[in-house]
């Protein structure tokens, strides 16, 4: 940048002081060409600020579009097959009833409670950034694709809580609860991050999905005890688990 432009920019940003400011203002009053250059530069700065406001509002509109997007959850074909298999087995192998009842109940409770975690990272930044690409896939419910990106990023950023958190939720969305538990345990070990309540909640769901109802119950009780965003959901899920336990005599 040439020196004059740089000087004008500093003036417009209010960064000129003392003698530099005095000299600048004196020249402004005596040099019409300089005065015109300052005016043009000011118009440019104002123009870019106006454009910035419009850009900012566009970003808010993108958030609103996400809020307005109906969250429909389709039942994966895989799960339909599983349900059919459960029914068949219950017909031909009555003695496995107890086991499959539990599996089916866990699945049902999980499905009723699981909603993908909100994207708090956003997608408006560098479109070439792999995390942003992954978050776009996540927003588009391509959890398999997003998970591949998160797993590729983790070796470079092993301490990134954000990546691990969204990797865990993606694992849950595609039916990999054990991998989700591994990631979430690491997230829960770290204290200084923005997802502590969410990490506990998804850990409870991961235990439920994996069939470990005891650990799910224990984690849900911890959530209720601590309070926060997921207290109500945790309490409701605990009630349902209690009812199921009473029905099968567990």
């Amino acid at each position: 940048m040439n020196q004059e432009d740089e000087l004008i920019e500093k003036y417009l940003e209010g960064k000129l002081t003392g003698k530099s400011l005095e000299a600048f203002e004196e020249r402004l009053g005596t040099d019409p060409a300089f005065s015109k250059a300052v005016k043009i530069q000011k118009n440019i700065q104002d123009a870019l600020k106006t454009a910035g406001k419009m850009d900012f509002i566009q970003n808010l509109k993108a958030i609103q579009a996400e809020v307005d997007k109906p969250k429909t959850k389709s039942i994966p074909v895989k799960r339909l097959w599983l349900a059919a298999a459960v029914v068949m087995l219950m017909l031909v192998l009555p003695f496995t009833w107890f086991y499959f009842f539990n599996v089916n109940t866990n699945e049902r409770l999980f499905d009723a409670s699981f909603k993908p975690y909100d994207n708090l990272i956003g997608t408006r930044d560098n479109p070439n950034d792999r995390l942003q690409v992954a978050m776009k896939k996540y927003d588009n419910e391509d959890y398999e694709g997003a998970l591949n990106d998160y797993l590729a990023l983790l070796p470079k950023h092993p301490d990134s809580i954000d990546i691990r958190m969204y990797a865990a939720v993606s694992c849950l969305a595609i039916g990999k609860p054990l991998a989700a538990i591994r990631h979430l345990k690491r997230v829960n070990k770290k204290g200084d991050h923005i997802h502590p309540q969410a990490a506990k909640w998804y850990l409870a769901l991961a235990y439920l999905k994996s069939g470990d109802r005891d650990m799910a119950t224990k984690t849900l009780r911890e959530i209720v005890k601590k309070g926060g965003r997921y207290t109500h959901q945790a309490r409701e899920l605990l009630k349902k688990l209690d009812r199921v336990g009473a029905r099968v005599g567990v």
Partner: peptide, 16 residues
């Protein structure tokens, strides 16, 4: 920086 959009989104959702 990179993290800003995350806070804007939270701010938006918390007050909407």
């Amino acid at each position: 920086g990179m993290e800003e959009s995350k806070y804007i989104k939270a701010l938006y959702l918390q007050n909407l």
